[in-house]
Amino acid sequence: MKKDNNTPIIFVSVIIILIQIVTNTFFYLGRYIYIAFFIYIILNLPYRYKTIPTMLFAFCLGLLIDLASGSLLGLNAGAAVLIGACRLSILEQFSTLDNIERDSRPNIKSLSFVKYFLYISTMTFLFFIAYFLLEAMTFRNLGFTTLRILISGSINTNILLIFGCILQNNS
C-alpha cells in the first residue's frame, strides 16, 4: 500500500468544513434531518492516529463547526468525541490492524465494501445517537429522538458512502 499524500486530503477537508458551515447556516432541512459531512474527516483519518489524539481532533473539529455555524456550542463537539473514542475499536472489529500500513486510511480497498459500509454506518449512527441525545438532554419523547436518529443516520450513511466512493476513486 502506498503512503498517502496529505495535501489533497487537507484541501478536501477544508472544502468539507466549508460545505458543512454553509449547509448549517443557510439550509433548512427540518428537525428530522441533520447532515454531518464533517464526520467524514474523522472517519477518514489514518490508522496511525491513536484514540486520544483522534478524540482531541474530533473535539476541535466539532467545536469549529459549532462556532462557525451558530449552532448550540458543544453539540457537534460532544458527538464527534464519541466517534473519535470508538473509531479504532470499531476498525479493529472489521480488520486486522496488524496487516495494514499505519499511514493508510480506512477505505473500500483496504476493508472491502461490506466492511467499509458497516464501519461508516456504525460510526454515523453512533454520532447521531450522541448528537440527538445531547441536543434533547432528556429521554423524554424517546420515540421522536429515535426517529430522528434513524432518518439522519440512514441519509448520512448513504451520503458518506457516496463521498467515500467518489474521493477514493479519484485518489
Partner: peptide, 15 residues
Amino acid sequence: VSFLILEGFSIYLIK
C-alpha cells in the same frame, strides 16, 4: 478519563 473530560466539557458548553 480523556473521553469523560472532553464529553463533560461539551455538555458544560451545551448547558
